[in-house]
Amino acid sequence: MNKELEHSFVELLEKHQNIVHKVCRLYTNNYDAHNDLFQEITIQLWKAYPKFRGDSKFSTWMYRVGLNTAITLYRKSKRTINTQDFEGVEFKIKSEDYDDTEEQQLKILYKAVHELNDIEKALVFLYLEDKDYREISETLGISEVNARVKMNRVKTKLKTILNP
């Protein structure tokens, strides 16, 4: 691979690295695992980069490679701890405590998202990134209708986790 290609790739990745960090944030729950996944996504992006033709935006292309790596290709390292061990606030709080401070509410929400399975996390990720259902369905390889149905189920599931 020539230096020019390498340079353009590194510059683009540096600019859009937040996307990769966000994928890692959702699929890992400790510093080492985050770095491992970040590294694997970077390698997969770099390997696929020569075929990136620029038909889509670099960031859109990154979503797909990032999620595919996290869901399918990445072999969880030994350092990845189980989501059950996630350090956060006490999970099963009483529902009347739910409207506590915003920070606590967010912690609970993030923890609840970590409880979801890999596919549900992918849906949540794309939703949080403001992707429409067409793009969500294309990224995951499911129909648009099913993407909507699943998204609604995920929302209900989150509600149930938060208000047991």
């Binding site: 390498e6 790739f9 590194v10 510059e11 990745l13 540096e14 690295q17 960090h21 890692c24 944030r25 985050h34 970040f38 590294q39 694997e40 970077t42 390698i43 997969q44 770099w46 390997k47 790596t69 399918t72 290709l73 990445y74 072999r75």
Partner: peptide
């Protein structure tokens, strides 16, 4: 909550070996 990588930090990552399935 994560470290923003510089161009210098990214270059070495490209030389690492993949451990994908």
């Amino acid at each position: 909550d994560y470290k923003k990588l510089s161009v210098k930090d990214i270059y070495p990552l490209l030389q690492k070996k993949s451990s994908s399935i």
